[in-house]
């Protein structure tokens, strides 16, 4: 495989990551609804069944528990399954298998059995969808010991993190920012080491305030930083990438420089990732804080009807408002 760089959307980068992982390891096997001939409802697995056959790209019957439960069995038999759950709101029938079985098996077997299963889930709102198609369930998974939870925000990470997740010996919940599937960027297939799967990345250097987010909100956070720049405020933007474990060292180091932290996520506020980060920051960087940690998030309601989502979601204006509140405290 010679390294090439080309411009492509996140969906294609994920596809390429899957393809290269499948080429590198014949045990990598994809399971999901409509992922074969159709290529997935978002076309992320487009063409893979044609290349690798229906034994490696398995069009499953409906049944999310079946997808994850059979992936567990396949992993026990020495395979590296990559599951696709069609939409965020449909992962819940599989929660029993994920929480009581997948996450716990290594612990129960005292390390004798590892289950290298990746569960891909398109997440988040902003696409004008009907109910159950716009949710952000990351906190459920991040709260579950034994799982890793990651979310790429750009094509390069989509490619790199997919391959790293498949290589991981721990189960990985892989959250794909669905509204940005068609966001383009350069992807290098270079074999040089990408950032570790569990490391946050500073995507913009700044000195005045730390803005932490992940997934679909990263480009929004970058825009917010641009606006702030015009006002003379330098924002340090961190793309968390890994939601479990959380790379809190990166956030702590930044807050120790800036003294201010704003966390943004689409998921509901209470008991969310923002709450976790706020707790860790007060623990590790209490004396560096100039103002309280501000959370800009979805609200503690079910995801609203899509005509309301633009105001419900933490968009540019709400993030800027959060930043203002931090500076004017």
């Amino acid at each position: 495989m010679t390294a090439v760089t080309s411009r492509m959307p996140i969906a294609h980068a994920l596809n390429l990551g899957l393809r290269h992982a499948m080429e590198a390891d014949e045990k990598v096997t994809l399971i999901g609804q409509d992922i074969g001939q159709l290529g997935g409802v978002f076309r992320v697995t487009d063409g893979l069944q044609k290349t690798f056959g229906d034994h490696r790209v398995v069009d499953s019957p409906l049944g999310e528990a079946g997808i994850v439960g059979s992936a567990i069995g396949l992993a026990m038999a020495g395979y590296r399954p990559v599951c696709e759950i069609q939409f965020d709101g449909f992962v819940f029938p599989a929660m029993n298998q994920i929480i009581t079985q997948l996450a716990k098996y290594r612990h129960r077997s005292e390390g004798a059995v590892t289950l290298p299963v990746v569960i891909r889930i398109p997440v988040g709102g902003g696409i004008g969808a009907i109910e159950h198609h716009s949710e952000s369930p990351e906190a459920y998974f991040a709260h579950t010991a034994g799982l890793k939870v990651v979310s790429p925000s750009n094509p390069q990470d989509a490619y790199d993190m997919m391959r790293l997740a498949i290589r991981s010996n721990d189960p990985v919940i892989f959250l794909e920012p669905k509204r940005n599937y068609w966001l383009k960027g350069d992807v290098s297939t270079s074999t040089t080491t990408p950032a570790d799967l569990d490391k946050a990345v500073t995507v913009r250097k700044g000195t005045d305030l730390t803005l932490v987010t992940y997934g679909a909100l990263v480009p929004v956070a970058m825009k917010a930083a641009d606006v702030c720049q015009e006002e003379g405020r330098n924002i340090d933007v961190i793309d968390l990438r890994s939601l479990s474990p959380i790379d809190d060292k990166a956030v702590v180091a930044s807050v120790q420089r800036t003294g201010r932290l704003v966390v943004a996520h689409e998921a509901s506020r209470s008991a969310g990732l923002g709450a976790e980060l706020a707790a860790r920051i007060q623990d590790e960087a209490f004396h560096s804080l100039i103002s309280p940690v501000i959370r800009v998030t979805g609200y503690d309601t079910p995801y609203p009807a899509s005509r309301l989502e633009e105001e419900w979601l933490p968009g540019l204006d709400r993030i800027l408002d959060g930043i203002d509140r931090s500076f004017t405290y």
Partner: peptide, 20 residues
């Protein structure tokens, strides 16, 4: 397996592995 019925799916997945 204490969760009733959960192992039936693991058996299915393992059998998929045997087939492959």
């Amino acid at each position: 397996t204490l969760v009733i019925g959960a192992q039936t799916l693991h058996a299915v997945g393992y059998a998929m592995g045997i087939l492959r």
